[in-house]
Design a protein around this nucleic acid. Structure first.
Length: 224
DNA sequence: ACGAGGATGCTCT
DNA sequence: GAGCATCCTCGTG
């Protein structure tokens, strides 16, 4: 099992995101226990992307980070971690993509446990069945013991890194709109292993927006 | 099997 | 003060 190197991530984000499927995320814990998951779901975010956190500090046509941009200096450092807290509770793990100076990253949204599953059960008390352990971006960071201490760190070496398994399980790659966003919902930038139980249960944002429209209309039509 | 609502903290307006 | 790349619990069928 070889670690993925910087050149894997030093490419267009829309190439990296689907190719991460079937590859491993490995956390070598301090107590020597290894937590390993096979990636089954990812999302791409780029500089030319209104849904991206770095939108606004990026020159939209080129995707280049403006030199005046505060923070986000790590964009353009392929293979590094962009980790942030969402809803005050859950950590999201992204890996930086693209060449130097260009903004982009891939959100890891789903893992299939490969090693250390007993540790994951202990870290995820709400889990009722195996799929509850890692089927979502917030769940998998809890299970894998990933939080803000990894922000800005390298994901090319221990304790946290990506790896090429001895054999990649055959899988069909499906796409959809990304989950939980309100902008650029028409972009089909979510990639997942079709039929895999560890894909997150969320509804793609274009479908969710359509469902909301329908339910509002039915309320309006209801006689009073 | 759904659906609604709450938790909770950081960033941006 | 609002919004957020989420998850969990507790209702109702």
């Amino acid at each position: 099992m070889r670690k993925l190197k910087a050149d894997f991530f030093d490419r267009p984000t829309l190439e990296v995101a689907p190719e991460l499927l079937g590859r491993y995320l490995v956390h070598e814990n301090v107590d020597g226990r290894r937590l390993v998951g096979s990636i089954v779901e990812t999302e791409a975010y780029t500089g030319d992307d209104p849904a991206f956190h770095a939108w606004g500090i990026v020159d939209a046509p080129t995707g280049l980070v403006k030199p005046t941009g505060r923070g986000y200096d790590l964009f353009g450092k392929p293979g590094h971690a962009y980790v942030y807290l969402i809803y005050g509770m859950y950590w999201m793990l992204n890996v930086i993509t693209e060449r130097e100076g260009v903004a982009g990253c891939v959100l890891i949204r789903g893992l299939e446990p490969v090693e250390g599953e007993s540790v994951m059960w202990a870290r995820r008390p709400a889990a009722r069945q195996p799929r509850d352990l890692t089927s979502g971006p917030g769940k998998l960071t809890q299970a894998m013991d990933i939080d803000g201490r990894f922000h800005r760190g390298s994901l090319l070496r221990a304790p946290l890194y990506f790896a090429e398994p001895d054999r990649i399980e055959p899988h069909a790659v499906a796409t959809s709109s990304r989950i939980g966003i309100t902008r650029a919902v028409e972009r089909q930038w979510r990639f997942f292993c079709e039929g895999n139980r560890f894909v997150s249960p969320g509804v793609p944002s274009d479908i969710a927006a359509d469902t909301r429209r329908r339910s509002r209309r039915s309320i309006r039509k209801r006689p009073s």
